[in-house]
Amino acid sequence: MTQYTEQDFINQLTGKGQGAAPARLGTRFNAEGQFLPEPGNTIVAHVPEGSKIQTELAALAQKMKALPGAEHFAFTPVSSYHMTVFQGVIEFRRKEGFWPPFLPMDATIDSVTAHMVEKLKTFPKSSRFEIKPIALTPLGLTVAGKTSEDEIALRDFRDQLADCFGYRHPDHDDYTFHITMAYLIKFMAPEQARIHAQAIKALSDEFLAKVPDIELGTSDFCTFEDMNHFEPVVFDL
């Protein structure tokens, strides 16, 4: 389970070792924080609409938006909040390890989706799991299985999906589960990053004291056109 330090956040916010601009600038979002077309598919467990945890996360997002430096982020809609169970394919990530084998790299997203839906027709029912929050980061909430048994069930689910689709992302075994709430669109100056990182840590401590676990909906295979909405296609895997 990944543990982040204040210095990790500062490095992330200042762009240390990340190149000239934040990752996905120009493909996922623009410099004004508007989300761009980026079609793909994924398996996610949504934060249920109207649930207590959605209300808590919405309140947390408002606090994040009020922090100094918030203009450096593009915030995702509350209605889109989810935990990714297994990363599918995405238009701008066509390479080995991120694409089902035996399909050409230039296949349309729709044709890959149809292939994956067909594969899921014989997918066994996954074990149920519950999750808990671990920490707030500048980009959202990291989470994990509520118990060791939940974590094992969640990891086993990912292994089964990898076997079903025939590929594993490079970070498959050490993937950090999370609920994305924002994307960094512009790096910060070091002092601004330090202030922001400390504020995020304070919000994290406050949230973890108040919210011991997180309610999620079923794990569904979804399609998306951008990061604003994830439409279920195959329900309750």
Rank of each mutant, 00 (worst) to 15 (best):
P101D: 09
G145M: 09
L139Q: 07
C164L: 03
L57T: 01
W99E: 02
I53Y: 10
C222F: 03
E149A: 15
M227R: 10
Q192C: 08
T27I: 15
S79K: 14
A189T: 04
L154E: 00
V47S: 07
F75K: 09
L57Y: 05
L141Y: 02
G17M: 08
A74D: 10
V117F: 03
D174Y: 13
H172D: 08
D236H: 13
L60C: 06
L154P: 02
N30P: 03
K16R: 15
A21Y: 09
M1A: 15
F35S: 01
A162H: 08
Y4S: 00
H172Q: 11
K65H: 08
M181H: 01
H72K: 07
R168Q: 09
L67R: 00
D110S: 13
I134P: 06
E149P: 03
T113Y: 02
E130S: 15
D8K: 07
T84S: 10
L237M: 10
L136A: 05
S111L: 04
P170A: 10
S51P: 12
H46F: 07
I131L: 14
Y175R: 08
A59D: 15
M188I: 10
Q3C: 15
Q87T: 11
E56H: 11
E151S: 14
G69T: 06
F157H: 11
R168C: 02
G19F: 12
E6G: 07
D171C: 11
F129K: 04
Q54K: 02
A193N: 08
R128Q: 13
D236N: 13
D106M: 10
E91W: 06
H46G: 03
Q3D: 15
T147L: 08
P101S: 11
L120N: 05
G140H: 01
D163F: 04
F73A: 06
L36G: 01
R28V: 15
Y183V: 04
T223E: 05
K146A: 15
P212F: 09
I152C: 11
A66Q: 12
P68Y: 02
L203I: 05
E225H: 09
F29Q: 01
A182T: 01
I53N: 15
A114F: 07
S51K: 10
H72L: 00
M181I: 04
Y183D: 00
H169D: 11
D220E: 06
H72C: 07
D110Y: 07
I152F: 15
A70Q: 04
A107Y: 00
T113M: 01
S126Y: 12
